[in-house]
Amino acid sequence: AISGVMAMYVAAFRLKRIEFFYWFFMFVGFIRAPALLILGFYIGKEILDYYTNPHSNVAYMAHVGGFIAGSLLILGALLLNRNIFDFTYLEQDQSIDPAQEQLAEVYSLIEKYRFGLALKTLNALITEHGNSLERETLRYNLTKLRPDKAFLNSLHTLLRHKPGNERELALLHSVWRENPEIRHTLDTDSQVRLALNLTSPDYLTTAEDIFNALQRDKANHSALGVLARRLSLCFEGLGNAAKHKTYNDFAERAISGGSLR
């Protein structure tokens, strides 16, 4: 089966350089080479081993057969549908992304419990290639081991990220709930932005909590008005007429500049 997939790689990438894993006694690693060259070498080695190791328990010719089967299957598929390959993807540069390579090194260091070096490597990665929710979450988890100013800065940065999907939204919600003391150090705009992200049925209670806390602190009127409008629409969608009216009235007063009491 694996040989069959390798045959499909030959058909797809041909002379394009792709990454291969290798091992030689105790040495392992990755090399980049044309698919046709390396996989052709692989099949040649299987045939050679078949004739030079006749008493081996390895089914060398089964590997060769799988390769031939994969070649025939991909050829038949291409004859039936030329668009079976995403040629735009195949023509892209297949070289390793340096940022992904550094990130893999961070994960490797974490697996070895070398948290200090992992954090140092991650900071260098963020400085060189920019930040993302995944990278900041990693930094948050690493600095959480020894809470200090670096942890607080990472926590602030993480909560200011805009989630791109439900998983990331759940992550931000979880981080906020894990650190209730952060509210007193996070600026109003960041809290409002977070609450706006959380105005969904699953996290509406937390969004309300943030709104109520900001209201008690007499936060910026316009920012609270925007949040109140979003909460109003959310409760309207849920059929909660009372809360819809409460937040809608607050938003109207905020926009008109009236009293927010």
Rank of each mutant, 00 (worst) to 15 (best):
L198Y: 02
Y9C: 02
E252Y: 06
N141Q: 13
H63S: 09
D189M: 01
L73F: 08
A254D: 07
N248C: 07
T205H: 12
N248V: 00
L214D: 11
A241W: 12
E236W: 11
A1R: 05
A62F: 01
L39M: 11
Q100A: 15
A124N: 13
A11K: 03
Q191D: 04
L133G: 01
V226P: 02
K144S: 06
M61R: 04
R139P: 09
D189R: 03
D249K: 08
R193M: 03
P98K: 14
A35W: 00
V28E: 08
D49V: 10
R167W: 07
V106L: 13
E166K: 04
L204A: 14
I68C: 09
N220Y: 15
K120H: 08
S132C: 06
H173W: 09
L75N: 12
Y247H: 11
D49F: 10
L138N: 06
Y203S: 14
V226T: 07
I255P: 04
N153Y: 10
V175S: 11
D187P: 00
A12G: 10
A251W: 02
A33G: 00
T246Q: 15
Q215I: 13
K120Y: 09
S200A: 06
G237V: 11
E105V: 06
K243N: 14
Y50D: 03
T188Q: 06
N153C: 01
A77C: 04
P180Y: 15
D187I: 00
E181T: 15
K162M: 01
D86A: 07
